[in-house]
Design a protein around this nucleic acid. Sequence first.
DNA 1: ACTGTTACCTGATTGC
DNA 2: TGCAATCAGGTAACAG
Length: 289
Amino acid sequence: MPELPEVETVMRGLRARLEGRVLARARINRPDMRWPFPPGLAQTLTGARVTSFRRRAKYILMRLDGGDSVLIHLGMSGRMLIGPVSNGPVSNGPDMLHEHMTLETSPSADDPGWRVGFIDPRRFGSVDLVPTAGEDSHRLLADLGPEPLDAGFSAATLSAALDGRRTPVKAALLDQRNVAGLGNIYVCEALFRAGISPERPAHAVSAAETKKLVKAIKAVLGEAIAAGGSSLRDYVQPDGELGYFQHAWKVYGRAGEPCENCPGPPLCAGIQRIVQSGRSSFYCPRVQQ
DNA sequence: ACTGTTACCTGATTGC
DNA sequence: TGCAATCAGGTAACAG
């Protein structure tokens, strides 16, 4: 379930287990993902020490001491499973077919050694290598907009991005050049909090509403990240899954349910589902105009 | 330049 | 119960 908060939680889980460790083994099981894994990936990984992690939008960057960063995207169905090397394979059953990359750290006195599996049935995910010094110049990162939780994302910057656009505000917020890391769920949730219809043309969002929208985006993402961290010990669930946690969505996936902010029928018909550019939008037409 | 649609894949769920 | 249709959290390549 990888939007920004999930990717952040997965990244923290990887950091907790891998940072400072040497990758004793790396195996590529099938390289034909969204883009083929780069040639030499396994060789670059094997024997390298993991120095640090960073998230940019929905991408994870794992830095290696050799000067390369491993750029990981989870796509739609990508997951990371982790477990002690001594437990054997991290994935079972159908997952085993879809474990496209496996990493193992060296055991040491204070650490049992960990095995990490990158599982992605739909194979929309990707892995690439980029020199750490030029991470942000990678073609997948070069055109990304501001990080929504940074000070660089403000009413002023969002307003500039929405200005003059005829596209619905929903589509504008999904456009990673305007703000980086939002996906379908958190766009729906942020628009609900801000009281703005997903169908509103981007240019018709007022200055006051833009301010409200920026606050809503930061709040909804911040709360989801906090929930991810607080509901998992070390970000690893008992089954080895990284980055999953309970959500409290107000509109996403709730078509037909009553809206929390409304008195119910006949004044409010509840949460509606519409399709915009081929994707579901959930909203309350009474709260969001 | 801008906007909307299509395609990439597999698996889970819905509907007949 | 079985099978087909629909839908899924992302994003790049298109077409207009």
